[in-house]
Write a protein that binds this DNA or RNA. Structure first.
Lengths: 164, 164
DNA sequence: CTAAGTGCAAAAAGTTTGCATTCCG
DNA sequence: CGGAATGCAAACTTTTTGCACTTAG
């Protein structure tokens, strides 16, 4: 439950910044005004943001920044292991900070309102590793998504459900 | 384990045919030569086939059948709950027969050779339902995919792994 | 007959890239 | 300065659709 809903400001941000700094240095990448704005906005943004949504936020700060720069910056963050790409079933690629337990959390997607929540369940991790081992495999990464409807009648997000 | 690898010819095919027949009747849909070829080919094909691959098989039988017809026929099968669409991380939409336990199996994808295997683990089902309930949700459907590498050195499919 | 289905080619929708220009280091 | 980064627009990739023609019922 602790991770449900909006993730708290991650304490990892500092670590991520320094990871990124190293990555950029090692690869001779430059720190530009656009990248700074995009990265700061991304660090502040909600998790699982799409390029379009991030671009909109970025444009509030500097309207001249274009889609391609946001796109390329997110790719850079991904390459630096500071961000992770996620593809849910809505056709968009979404990005999230690659914080510490990134490898261990999964997602619950609300079919009513599109909210995306996170959960962790070590027991499921164990079971899936066991299954893979039994079949002769080792899990490199996984995807576990629960597409749900809200059971709380008072949920303010609940909507468009008269059709049942 | 019993479901690993190629699924056995499902005994559900008869049931699916009749489901489809009803669906088409109820909706005033017609049985055409193209649809018959596409459907028979699909029923015979391996699971998780892409439109392109199915089209190739279909063209062996009748080269004049086009992509759009295969596309629309698979959409029809999906609407009739005879097939299910699956999107893995390779950019293609894949289709599988919606057999009995379709709702309960998940997938293991081999990163070495792209093979897709199935597994079932009722305990994971239970755990995920419990998690959703705790957060105030009910699972409608889910996606659980394990992206793995093969641990069997003799695996004939194993390849392109010298780079580690 | 006529509404449904087909095949083609064009439109969408998202992602990726080429290139002239700008700018960091 | 020189190579890296940017912004635009064009190219791609895969899915979806419009339309004139064909055909099942």
């Amino acid at each position: 439950m602790t991770k449900a809903g909006r993730a708290p400001r991650s304490p990892d941000v500092d670590r991520l910044r320094s990871t990124l700094r190293s990555y950029m240095e090692e690869n001779g990448l430059r720190s530009t005004e656009q990248r700074r704005v995009i990265i700061e906005t991304f660090l502040r943004a909600r998790r699982h943001i799409t390029i379009d949504d991030l671009l909109a936020l970025v444009k509030e700060e500097d309207p001249r920044i274009g889609y391609a720069t946001v796109y390329r910056t997110l790719k850079m963050l991904t390459a630096a292991s500071v961000a992770n790409e996620r593809r849910f079933s809505d056709g968009y690629t979404r990005y999230e900070l690659a914080d510490e337990d990134e490898a261990h959390h999964d997602h619950l997607i609300c079919l009513d309102c599109g909210r995306i929540m996170e959960f962790e369940e070590p027991q499921i991790e164990k079971l899936q590793n066991r299954i893979a081992a039994r079949l002769g495999f080792q899990v490199q990464y996984h995807k576990h998504e629960l597409y749900c409807v809200c059971t709380n009648a008072e949920c303010p997000h609940r909507k468009d459900r008269e059709s049942e």
